[in-house]
Design a protein around this nucleic acid. Structure first.
Lengths: 133, 133
DNA sequence: CTTGACCCTATAGTTGCTACAGGGTGCATA
DNA sequence: TATGCACCCTGTAGCAACTATAGGGTCAAG
C-alpha cells in the first residue's frame, strides 16, 4: 500500500482537530489542498497527516498561526541553519513568560480584594469598593 | 459648579482609555449615552467618569465585558447581599488560576524543548523534531 | 480666514476559530 | 429500490474585545 487516503474525518480524529478547523487551515494556506474523490470529498495523504500533526503540536504549544507558518516553511529547508527556528521559539517563550507574570500580578491583586470581602450588602462590599472611584 | 461636563477626550485621558473604546462601551450598552453639545459632541457628567473608571478597573483585573456588566448592575443595588459579586469574583479567580496553570505547563514543555536545541541545521533541530511526527 | 486638534458615524478588520444554512454523498439495512 | 444516518461540501456570519479606516464636521487659537 504505497498511497493511503484519509478523509477529513479521519484526519480530525487522528489529530484531535475539528473538521471545520482543518478546512480553516486549508483556507488560510497552512495545509495544502488535497485531492478530491469523485464525490468531491477531500482525500488526504499521509504527508497531510504529518503536516497537520505538526500544526496541532505547535498550536498546542501556543505558537501563533503566523509563527506556525514560519516554522513549517523553515522545517522544509533541511540544510539551513536552525537559528531562525530558535529565534521564533525564544520570542514565543518570552511572550509566555510575560503572560504568566501579568496573570500572576492580576491574581495577587484580585485575590487580595476577594480576601477582604466579608459578605454583607453591596453598600459595604469590598470588591465593589475596590472597583469604584 | 454643580454640573461638570467632560468631552470624550477628557474621559479618555482621565481613565487611560482610547476614545474609540469609550464609543464602543457606549454602543454595547456598558456606558449610558451622554448629552450632546450643540456641535453634537458628547458631553459627559462626573457620574459617567465614575462609571468608566469602574469599567476600566474591572477590565484591567481581567473581568469579561459581561462580568463587568453584571458587576455594574449589582453595584447599583446597595441593599442587596454581595453574594453574587463574590460569586463572579471567585469564578474569575478560578479562571485566572487555570490560565496560569495552563501557561506554566506550556512553558515547562516549551522551555525543555528549547533547552535541547543546539543550533545546527534544520535537519538536526530539536525544536522541529519535537513538533514533527 | 486658516490650521490643527478634536469630534462624529459607519463599516470593516484583527486572531483563531466556530456556528449556521442549505445541500450532496456513501453505505448499511429493510 | 428506498430509507436513514453519518459524513461530506461551500459560503457566510458570528464570537470576544477591541481597533483601523474612510470621510466629514466642530472648535479655538493665530
Amino acid at each position: 500500500m504505497a498511497h493511503e487516503n484519509f478523509s477529513i474525518g479521519d484526519l480530525a480524529k487522528a489529530t484531535k482537530t475539528k473538521v471545520v478547523t482543518i478546512r480553516y487551515y486549508e483556507r488560510i494556506g497552512l495545509l495544502p489542498e488535497p485531492e478530491r474523490t469523485a464525490g468531491n470529498y477531500r482525500s488526504y495523504s499521509a504527508a497531510h497527516l504529518g503536516r497537520l500533526s505538526f500544526i496541532r503540536r505547535a498550536r498546542d504549544l501556543g505558537f501563533s498561526i503566523e509563527q506556525v507558518r514560519d516554522l513549517l516553511s523553515l522545517s522544509d529547508q533541511r540544510d539551513r541553519s536552525c537559528e531562525a527556528v530558535d529565534a521564533i521559539a525564544c520570542a514565543h517563550l518570552t511572550e509566555v513568560d510575560r503572560k504568566i507574570a501579568d496573570l500572576q500580578a492580576l491574581r495577587r491583586e484580585l485575590g487580595s480584594i476577594i480576601d477582604q470581602c466579608g459578605c454583607g450588602t453591596i453598600a459595604e462590599c469590598r470588591i465593589i469598593e475596590a472597583l469604584s472611584p
